[in-house]
Design a binder for these strands. Structure first.
Lengths: 208, 208
DNA sequence: TAGATTGTTAATCGATTAACAATC
DNA sequence: TAGATTGTTAATCGATTAACAATC
């Protein structure tokens, strides 16, 4: 299990492998060869074998890969065998969508609190009876509660204000939906989802 | 303007350039060199010059790049000088977020209709008075209205059912938020946003 | 003109694909 | 054992960086 120095390209492919393997599991497929997986996923068999080998041999010569085992191993590499406490900062439609989404889709990510700045939203129950808290009380909340991940579903200005508060509290990761880069100490992981950039890429492809 | 054969890596970077240049414009910056842009964006100056040159010389030796001109040219390359008619299929929280988002954030993308399958949502006014229509009437709608882009903000099963209807109507692009690949004729562009994969990547990074 | 900075070629680096020996 | 398929090395391809001549 030499997981050091795995290239970013490989990591980015892991969730897709995980999704396809999950589908195969649902279809009760027990084993699969790199060649079969290759034709389902439209990538080369060579890449599949190369990718899996970065983490040590998951397969068996002459047999292929055990779907359940491979699925679970990739889940472990991705850290999906653990649980994470998550807060949502920004209780607008996107924040609500993410809160619900994470709750239903993924077991390991537990939404513990939702914050917003708008008086109109504060106190409103959103998901599963979680009341929206005032974002001005965020620092206080963080001083008494452990939080692994904060999802930032609020406008740029708010995100820039909130980022240092989260850094101070040593949150482990930030899932950033705001249209801005966040300047944070290197130990805090930032994963950004720039929806406008995705839409621009779609726009480009439509025209070329 | 030789826009043929531009690598995917370059295209994926264009929206980010566009965002930074937009910020610079807001700050009334008139000109910028690849060196300055390099230090702001944390990429090499060499890459910046290489990227821009794929589309023909935007700059001037000894001077740098004119921010406004460069911003507009990249906008054109991305197709942001045009308008697009868009529909949202799936009127849950994510669909509502996207509908609002696209309306407010980006001028060129006009939301013309919103569809859902749930009786509880149909008829409900969502954004700017757009009533949610029954997804079973989608084919009919498409036969009488021009649609450039469809955003799929509904579960996998629904997305797979709706995709061929959209293909039949020759929608130009699909912005896919469902956790699945869509099998479509090659002339239909698919841009997927897999939120769960993004969250898994965050999870990985937290642990490594 | 001199200084600055691009445009562009060449060198390096990294990622993907091909090939095949190892082995189940 | 023979056939299948991995694990892994070598070859290819593509993308990034470095260097510098062109030129504003």
């Amino acid at each position: 299990m030499d997981e050091k120095g795995i290239s970013k390209a490989v990591i980015n492919r892991l969730p897709r492998y995980y999704r396809f393997l999950g589908n195969l599991l649902d279809q009760k497929v027990e084993r699969i060869s790199s060649g079969e997986l290759s034709s389902i996923m439209h990538v080369t068999a060579s890449q599949i074998r190369q990718d899996f080998n970065h983490f040590g041999g998951f397969g068996q010569q002459g047999y292929g890969y055990n779907v359940k085992y491979l699925y679970e191993e990739i889940g472990k590499i991705l850290g999906l065998d653990q649980t994470y406490t998550m807060i949502i900062v920004g209780a607008g439609r996107l924040g609500q969508a993410i809160a619900n989404y994470v709750r239903f889709e993924k077991r390991g990510f537990q939404v513990a609190a939702v914050f917003d700045q708008s008086p109109a939203l504060i106190g409103t129950p959103t998901v599963h009876g979680l009341a929206v808290q005032d974002v001005s009380t965020l620092a206080e909340y963080l001083s008494t509660h452990h939080v692994d991940i904060a999802a930032l579903t609020l406008p740029t200005k708010g995100a820039l204000e909130v980022a240092p508060v989260l850094a101070e509290a040593k949150v482990r990761g930030i899932w950033n939906f705001a249209h801005t880069e966040l300047e944070l100490p290197p130990e805090i992981v930032v994963q950004s989802v720039h929806l406008s950039e995705s839409l621009m890429q779609l726009s480009y492809k439509i025209n070329h």
